Simulated scan of single mutants.
Amino acid sequence: MASKHRWKAIWLVLLGAASYGVLSTFVKLGYKQGFSAAEITGSQVLFGFIILWLLSLPKLWQMKGISGGIVLKLIAGGTFTGLTGYFYYQSLQVLDASFAVLLLFQFTWMGMLLDWITERRVPTLFQWIAMALTLLGTVLASGILSGTMDSPGASGIGLGLLAACCYTLFIYFSGKIATHLPALFRSAWMITGAAAIVLILMPPQFLWNGSLGQGLWQWGLLLSVFGMVLPPFLYAKGAPLIETGLAAVLGSVELPVVIVCSALLLHEATHAVQWIGIVLILLGVLVSERKTAVKAKRKNEYTEQIPRK
């Protein structure tokens, strides 16, 4: 039964990461229509905030027992998902997209390192192998080896790594803060923190400059569902049941989704080396679960050998 719940949690986290993966394609389509990064990001978090709280209204009475301290922790934890988008979009202004994605995906080893520091959980051999496969696959799938790239600046590298750090902390807090509460309530409070920090850093001028009426509302709604509603909810349901390091490795599935969506919707050219990278990333996900599967099998064999009274 525990193994069944674990695999359900793994699929939830995978779906959450896949939801993040479609965002870059939608953002690029929004940029093509002339909307700015501030307008795209601000409308995304604002619509996400509205949607999650509307969904929470029917059960709002259940929040009466939630302490102010827990609420503040959830809001604080939610700021990291807002900061991830903020730093990542800023890095895209000074870095090639392929290199910015590569920096963002450093969360795969950051999550394992954080798990090691906070939980004293030493990474297993399979986890080290999975991390190596994931990092190698990320380099290949990002397309950085298939073309020329401008020399990256220190500020862009710093912004990209900050985005990776914030994403790692978002995954960590998704699995640690108030895990006894319904995922919908946790997501609503966390999106409150994300919306607050983004709208402070990027004042919502789109509310009065006419951009919403020009079609921004469509992109804001679409991005909020796939970026601010589904992922926090799915992570809130799945992340508490698995390790932070594993959740970070599973999150790398986002990159293959980015490549596939870009090829299908933006008609961007892909290279064989990128598909090799995608295969390595998926292989890394499978390897990361190898030890758990072996342990579960041994446990079942041991249980079957115990004579029944």
Rank of each mutant, 00 (worst) to 15 (best):
T84P: 03
T84S: 08
G85T: 09
Y86T: 14
F87E: 00
F87A: 01
Y88C: 06
Y89T: 14
Y89W: 12
Q90E: 12
Q90M: 11
Q90S: 13
S91N: 09
S91L: 00
S91V: 04
V94G: 07
V94C: 07
V94L: 12
L95T: 01
L95Q: 10
L95F: 02
L95M: 07
L95E: 00
D96E: 15
D96L: 02
D96P: 03
A97G: 13
S98N: 11
S98D: 09
F99Q: 03
F99V: 03
A100K: 00
V101Y: 13
V101L: 15
L102K: 06
L102I: 10
L103I: 13
L104N: 01
L104D: 04
L104V: 12
L104R: 02
F105K: 04
F105C: 11
F105S: 09
F107I: 08
F107G: 00
F107L: 10
T108H: 11
T108I: 15
W109M: 04
W109T: 03
M110A: 13
M110P: 03
M110S: 14
M110N: 08
M110D: 15
G111R: 04
G111N: 01
M112W: 01
M112S: 15
L113E: 02
L114I: 02
L114F: 01
D115H: 05
W116K: 01
W116G: 04
I117Y: 11
I117W: 13
I117M: 01
T118C: 14
E119F: 12
R120A: 04
R120W: 13
R121N: 01
P123Q: 07
T124C: 10
T124L: 08
T124N: 08
T124H: 11
L125K: 09
L125E: 13
F126R: 12
F126C: 10
W128S: 14
I129F: 11
A130L: 05
A130K: 00
A130G: 04
M131L: 15
M131S: 13
L133H: 03
L133Y: 01
L136K: 02
G137Q: 06
T138V: 01
T138Q: 02
T138M: 02
V139G: 03
L140P: 14
L140W: 10
